[in-house]
């Protein structure tokens, strides 16, 4: 089976299972967006944190990609990521946990373009 986001899934597997937690800085946002794109097909649409949250997270990451993000973007990204813990099923919960790992281990990468000083 060939998945569009296969390398990204493999990468996430490494983060979670192998404890290899760092993403390459230049590709971080792009890789996470690819990962989300691959997961969207699994979303059942029943609960708001996952159905609407993932779409919003994507939009926020696109702001990073387009150099339009600010500190609020990062705060919102954190909030929506942690809110995936309120999802109804494992699709949302898993996306949330994977994104939490991204945030925890690559926070500096996301913080750098939005910091004020």
């Amino acid at each position: 089976m060939e998945l569009k986001n296969f390398p990204v899934n493999e990468l996430f597997q490494k983060w979670i299972l192998d404890g290899e937690t760092k993403l390459g800085e230049p590709e971080l946002v792009k890789d996470v967006l690819n990962y989300l794109d691959g997961q969207k097909g699994e979303i059942c649409g029943k609960c708001a944190p996952c159905r609407d949250g993932v779409v919003r997270i994507e939009q926020l990451l696109q702001l990073f990609e387009n150099n339009k993000a600010n500190l609020n973007t990062l705060k919102e990204l954190e909030k929506l990521t942690y809110n995936l813990r309120a999802s109804r099923c494992s699709v949302g919960l898993d996306i949330g946990k994977n994104l939490e790992v991204v945030l925890e281990n690559n926070y500096n990468v996301l913080y750098k373009p939005v910091r004020k000083y």
């Binding site: 944190p49 609407d52 949250g53 942690y82 809110n83 813990r85």
Partner: peptide, 17 residues
């Protein structure tokens, strides 16, 4: 705090659509 933050986030998401 975790619960209240989650409720606010979910309400924001619903209200945004």
């Amino acid at each position: 705090k975790k619960v209240i933050d989650s409720r606010i986030s979910t309400l924001q998401l619903l209200a945004s659509r």
